[in-house]
Design a protein around this nucleic acid. Sequence first.
RNA 1: GCUGGUGUGGCGGAAUCGGCAGACGCACAGGACUUAAAAUCCUGCGAGGUAACACUCGUACCAGUUCAAGUCUGGUCACCAGCACCA
Length: 803
Amino acid sequence: MNSKEIEKKWQDIWEKEKRFEVPNHVEGKKNAYILIEFPYPSGRGLHMGHCRSYTAIDAYARKKRLEGYNVMFPFGTDAYGLEAERTAIREHKRPQEIVERNIKTFQSQVRAIGMSIDWSRTINTCDPEYYKWTQWQFIQFYKHGLAEKREMTVNYCPNCGVLANEEVEDGKCCQCHTETTQKSKAQWVLKMTEYGERLADDLKDTDFMEHIKTSQINWIGKSEGVEVDFDIVGGGKFSIFTTCIETIYGITFMVVAPESKLVDELKDRIGNWSEVEAYRKATAKKSEFDRSEMNKDKSGVKLEGIYAINPVNGKKVPVYIGDFVIASYGTGAVMAVPTHDQRDFEFADKYGIEKIQVISGADVSKQAFEKYDYLGKNCTLMNSEEFTGQIVEEAKKNITEKLVKMGVGRKKLNFKMRDWIFSRQRYWGEPIPMIHCEHCGWVPVPDSELPVALPDVESYEPTKDGESPLSQIPDWVNTTCPVCHAPAKRETDTMPGWAGSSWYFMRYCDARNDKEFASLDALKSWLPIDLYNGGNEHTTRHLLYARFWNKFLYDIDLSPVSEPFKRRISQGLILGSDGKKMSKSSGNGVDPLQVIDEYSADALRLWMSFIGDYFESASWSDDGVKSCQKFLSRVERLQDILVDGDTYSKELSVAIHTAIKKVSQDIDNIKFNTAISALMILVNEITKVGKLNHAEYRTLLTLLNPFAPHMTEEIWETQKYSPRICDVKWPEWDEGKLVKDEIEYAIQINNKIITRLNIPTTASDSEIENIAKNEEKIASALNGKVVVKVIIIKNRLVNIIAK
RNA sequence: GCUGGUGUGGCGGAAUCGGCAGACGCACAGGACUUAAAAUCCUGCGAGGUAACACUCGUACCAGUUCAAGUCUGGUCACCAGCACCA
């Protein structure tokens, strides 16, 4: 049989015997939930990038299973989202058809690389059985006041409609890269900001890779500061938010966002209204991107006749509008301290505003002395009345206290993260299960009527006016109010692509439940996920949404854990052999199925793990797969030198125990490349010895099994070993048997290696010293010198310091 | 600019607590087997230096700590990722 037949044979056997299925409920602690982000089933099928994480994490799962864990390792597809819809439009097919076809391809490819998937749990986000629960959960958000329809300024892409902030990159749509604009529209939002603090703080309980935590933290953008009220001369007031309250005595002007309502309220008192109005109009035209792009040239307009009063010293300062102040962050107004904020500094320069230094320690005539530079350096305040001379950190506390006592200030947390805009005016998504009734307002669809099925339609392209295509189907839109039974209309917006992927890992635990989205019992058995692997592109948005979603379910006692993912890792990219990203245009793409065809799935699997550090990007190389294929056939050929024996032989004992330890630890630590190198070292050692017994061979095959499951099963069968390799126990190493009788020491004199010596491992320090000193070369080199000090590092070296 | 990460031969990459830098593999070179090729096996392979040794240099760069630094400390540079007029 050739490798292809062998691999097919075992894949069929595994599937037939339901080898990798686990129950929903498992007792005990030896459970491991291992998850790879489910893919969007694109027509191109599995690519090398998938292969790397799939095969490596599969190896991890297989090893855990051999160690006696109940391993849940599921697979599904995330079929909703813009990409599927766009493909459908391009190919003039219904998205449903395309998705169905692609899922089949995907699943067969996942089988072909030998994944140990529990297929009884497979799910797909556009399956009504699945999205029924996505809708149900939306309703729970609504019932708990965390979902509401809100008129708001939104990012709008002419192609893709309304986008969440997270979907806008550099002012462009993250899907089609068209320039986005601002539009006011009523949108469903999930109040994610209410969870901002917990989403940031609870990261400490997780074991995510550092850069993943960082990007989460950056995105959430939590800042601690103080909100302060400012009275306006002649009546009225407004508040500002600052993280640098210590600079309050340095305020020389204030800036509010141009669109601020305050400006309207003060209209009659503003001396230059026409100028102000013109500036506001100009700002409204600009997208958020344009506004931030203009950052080189700070612009603003003074509100003539308007002065704010600094509560700490009664100082009257002018008020400006400026488009660098964002209405939706903080209070939409800032205090400006040109000496200690570079932005304020430039603004002050441009409009000729005075500057007062309040923190000493730097020259502020050329540029501002900012918090990054003065914090933590024991800088003291100046020009700050009773706070003058206090250290910044101390003054921060004291000034805040004073403002609180005066009743004009309070501590405040602010987040850059905004609420999650949950509406899309697109066809291909879960319909939002809400009904609008003239008498009752918004009413959730009753549970008994879920799912609100996405109607099968001819035309699903986005409409010109930016409304959902569903709004064009009167039969679907018109319904009756569940409460008063009057005629009512369905919500026609659909959910964003991120909805279904925010909770799929829970559904896996109880995938066929038709009473609830997953029983708490099943969730308790499996959550939190022990290892969650996914692409770097999802480390901010998806992870944040999923954590938020779970936290909400946790709060209403439907999830047993407050953090669903214990450990999160991301694999590095697989690049083309030219070191560039694989792409059609550069023609450097490699098709995994062709590789399997030419070599074998096992060789591909081995190479994907051996190619380099799992977390770093790596270049594809044909020679690499070849070398792995070569290694596998070396292992196969070891059968020719097999001898009898049920215990490890003296010659190989140390090598075997060393390999067991290294492979075991490296797989746990996601260091697959060195795990394989340890196996190679073992095979080299066996080759040197020239023979191996069955016990040794069985151990080698077991260690190799996670990486090359087909071949090792086959050899196991050929050798008539029993039980089957997937039923054996992962070998254990004996720390005491790792030590050789003798170890080579490097012998140094004054840090320079003079010679190397084999010294028995049982030798004491003084014996080692004697052996070293008496060695011929050493003795002659030491002749006439005085030994000052002898440093002995066990099993490594001896360094003799001599004068 | 802020935050996090990385920097080691021709290449992918190893190196526990600071302890022989370059494991393992690729590529390359030489040899064995073969009529020949493929496959396989053996040997060599950081740079300079030597007939061969010896010796010298070498983990982005500059300092420091130490008997000993790829590893620790301070500073610089480059690249990657996230955030970025966020108050």
